[in-house]
Computed example of a mutant assay.
Amino acid sequence: MTPGIGPIKFSAIIDAVTPQELLSYSERELTLAGFNPTQTQFLRSTQHPWLSKIDAWLDGSELRHCVARYHDLYPSQLLETSASPPVLFVEGALKWLTCPQVAIVGSRNASFDGKQIASQFSASLAQDGITTTSGLAIGIDGCAHQGALSRCSESASTVAVLGSGLQHIYPKRHSQLAARIKEQGALVSEFAPWVRPKAGHFPRRNRIISGLASAVLVVEAAHKSGSLITARCAAEQNRDVFVVPGAFHSPVSTGSNALINEGAELIQSYQQFIHRCRSALNIASNDLRGSISHPPSITSPSPQNEETRLNEGNDPDSGLPFPLLLANLGVEPTPVDILAQRTHIKVQELMTQLVELELAGHVASVAGGYIRIRGNAP
């Protein structure tokens, strides 16, 4: 909490002196050690109202924890990285911070296929005893968390790393999802509980996502994307980076495809992915819980689940016309009969909706079916 002391400077300080010793320093000793007058005054003060605020937050639930770098349950994976957070604020079970983890990140404006891959891969990881870590954003992140929760158990769940304090869930549309993660997995932040989300916080949290995990899977990322920051953090932290390739003309895949050109490993099936994850985690197949024998097929969710998700207000298309139909369209052409199967909308009504969406500029008719061309939530 000392002004002007970030994770990097904090690490340098505690390499030379413990926090307990530092707090015993005189004003002169602090000045000689290089602290400016503001920092010296702060460290010498006995009045710190924010301490009582943290205590009050911790007292509010048995699921709340404050884990310092000296804590036995501070994740060793993260501790080994540069600029590891001095403190982690956690809501949920602390065991998820130290269990085998793989990060799945990607575009907020994800395609239907990208969302399905994120959801199905994370669900399969949970079945294989591996926890999925992500950033609670809309799109790929949210689907990765939801997929993991659908198959969570005593051995695997999901961890969400926030770019805000845990009293301010962002985006707000994921408040219900965050509540489920808190009960079945863990919410994590390096920011004090009352800190509001800011643009600069999210690139910072990406190093924690990759730092907690042993490998990172990127599912769709635009040319300028936070997911690319996570991938670069992973590379700097000596983590394996995997990428699901996308269509070359898709704007949500330009960044992820570029990662493949830069040396990230292309993933073409779940079998390949889980094999590489086991290698990254240094875990043998029989050490994991219930390995599946076949990769998941990229199929659509049941219409009932999709409609429920829309009714709960958790879908970025909910403010657009015919959100159920739009949610089932991506950059790859989808035939009308497939759309009818996915949505359970009668073909005659489906064609009427498609015409209206085409006239409004949200979809286009191409060879092989229909594609979505605009209208994604920001």
Rank of each mutant, 00 (worst) to 15 (best):
P303K: 09
E312M: 12
L259I: 05
L339D: 02
R309V: 04
E262F: 05
I260M: 10
A264F: 07
S253L: 03
S297L: 14
E312D: 14
F273C: 03
L339W: 10
I283E: 02
S256C: 02
R289D: 05
N261V: 03
S291T: 09
Q272V: 04
R239S: 05
E306A: 15
Q341R: 14
H249C: 06
L324Q: 12
L329Y: 07
L310C: 09
G330I: 06
E332Q: 11
T343P: 01
F322W: 11
L339R: 04
E236Q: 13
P333D: 04
S297Q: 13
G319H: 14
A235V: 08
N286M: 10
N305W: 15
T334M: 13
P323D: 08
I345C: 08
P335L: 03
G330H: 03
T334N: 01
A247T: 01
I338E: 13
Q304I: 15
E262Q: 13
S279Y: 08
V241C: 06
P251A: 04
Q272E: 11
Q341K: 15
V252D: 03
Q268W: 03
L320I: 06
C277H: 02
S285V: 11
D337R: 07
F322H: 14
D317P: 00
V336H: 01
H344K: 12
F242P: 01
R342E: 06
D315A: 15
R239K: 13
E307N: 05
Q304V: 13
N257P: 08
L326H: 05
S302P: 00
I283L: 15
N305Q: 14
P335N: 08
G319P: 05
L324K: 08
S285Y: 01
A280G: 09
S291W: 01
I283V: 10
A327Y: 03
S250P: 02
E307H: 09
L310H: 14
R342N: 06
R239N: 08
N311T: 09
S318W: 01
A327E: 02
V243I: 13
I345L: 14
N282W: 00
Q271E: 15
T254W: 13
V244C: 07
A327H: 10
S297F: 10
P303D: 06
V244G: 02
S300C: 02
T254I: 15
S302D: 09
H344W: 08
R289S: 13
E307Y: 13
N286H: 12
P251L: 09
P301Y: 12
N261C: 09
V252N: 03
S269T: 10
L329C: 02
I345Y: 09
S300Q: 06
R309K: 10
I274D: 01
L266A: 11
N311H: 13
R309F: 15
G319R: 13
I267S: 07
S269V: 01
S300G: 09
R309E: 07
P251V: 10
V252Y: 00
I292S: 07
G330L: 06
D315R: 05
G330Q: 01
H275D: 10
H275N: 10
D337E: 15
C277K: 01
D337K: 06
V252G: 02
D240Y: 02
